[in-house]
Amino acid sequence: MNPYPNSGTYPVPGEQDMMPTVEIRPFTYQISNLQGIGTCERQEDSFGFVNALDDEKISRRGLLAVLADGMGGMSGGKLASETTVATMRGDFEEFDMSGDIPRQLCSAAAKADDIVFGQLAGKGGSTLIACLFYREKLYFVSAGDSFLYLMRNGSLYRINAEHNVLHRKFEDRIADKDISLRSITNERENRAVTRYIGCGKLRDPDRFVRPLPLYVGDIVMLCSDGVANVLPPERIVEALESPSVDEMCRMMNAEISDNPTGQYRDNYTALLIRCAY
């Protein structure tokens, strides 16, 4: 027996000879993706969906969205990000949806880490954000400095932890009761990622242990730092208030591309999923 049928009618307590029914409408997901090369020579971001256009599969196995940002300046950045996305998508097809989904997401991330490390011997890597939308709940796993945002009721929330030297220093300083953050915010090393796919020892990616219930109107955005480090939060909110996911992508792309001549712009990628009926 399926305890959570995704559609159907149910009797509502009432008069026996009058049995009003309530139709339960399942979620649908409005999806869009945005990607640009910036001023770089090549695109090292990768992304992919699974079941994006298959209503039946989404209800049975969920919708997977994966984004990976290959390490800029490293050889194999593109290979690392493509391998990361392909591994997550491939492993997802074998998930036991009645089992421990967070554990399976972490295992897939660890497998991608092993594969990329084997390919590049530590000389390349990638960030990872993988989101699974299943039974109107959100699961995720992440490593690195890409961004996972939730926009709900007009407010923007950063969900995933940022795995870089700057935030490790924040943690150490806070534990030390030293909150003079300004003294550590301008160092070059701060941007170095501390957890990523391809390090060969990824043991503790960020994740939800319990999934986050989703509501109609929620917008989930996965994006690389080429988006989030260019658009301030207010501009992202403004874009996500657009009436359609396509318009959201259009607005963000226009802002990111509005690039003064000669100014460096990183690769940028964003995946948008809005919950609707």
């Binding site: 390490m71 530590g122 923007l156 924040f170 953050l181 941007r191 989030a228 260019v230």
Partner: peptide
């Protein structure tokens, strides 16, 4: 409204900076 690990929501945002994901320094 900005939650997560940003102590300052604008700390990671500087359009004038070279904003590439940076590999660990022992690469």
């Amino acid at each position: 409204k900005i939650m997560g690990t940003h102590a300052d929501p604008s700390a990671g945002f500087n359009p004038d900076e070279v904003n590439k994901t940076v590999a660990p320094s022992d690469y």
